[in-house]
Amino acid sequence: MINNLYKTFVDATRNVFNLMLHLSEVSDHPGEDCKCDDEVDIAVSIVGDLEGEVIYRFPVPTSLNMVNIMSGMQFEAVDDFVTSAISEIANIISGNVLTELSASDLKCDRLPPVQRKPDEDPNKDKEYELKTSCRINTSIGEVGLEIRLNRV
């Protein structure tokens, strides 16, 4: 299952974007990063049979578009409301992945999502058995996904 983790995360992201944001065209680009100047990084730590973290990189325009779709309101800047809403989306995607993993007897839990500044990454140089990233393209902008996990 650990070999399929990348696909599990991408599929979960695609499903959540489809259900919550009604985005039907979602493509993934393995190994590529988001091209943006300003972003909101949300880290979700994983504990249990797998340990590590998943970082969701939401460029500011994508974040604002996501919250606009959900609320029907216009947002001009990232604030507490926007950060909290997209953190919950990262939490939901991670939760769905862990549900999938439990079907393969991988028992994991997640910690509440935390916002992290892009230049403050305490685990950047840490070794991980599974370390992969991708850029996800949608009609409302890009999202970056970085998965860093070790088997326990």
């Binding site: 919550m20 919250v67 950060t83 809403a85 997209i86």
Partner: peptide, 8 residues
């Protein structure tokens, strides 16, 4: 924060 999380 509550409003954003509640919405999603």
């Amino acid at each position: 924060q509550f409003g954003g999380r509640l919405l999603a």
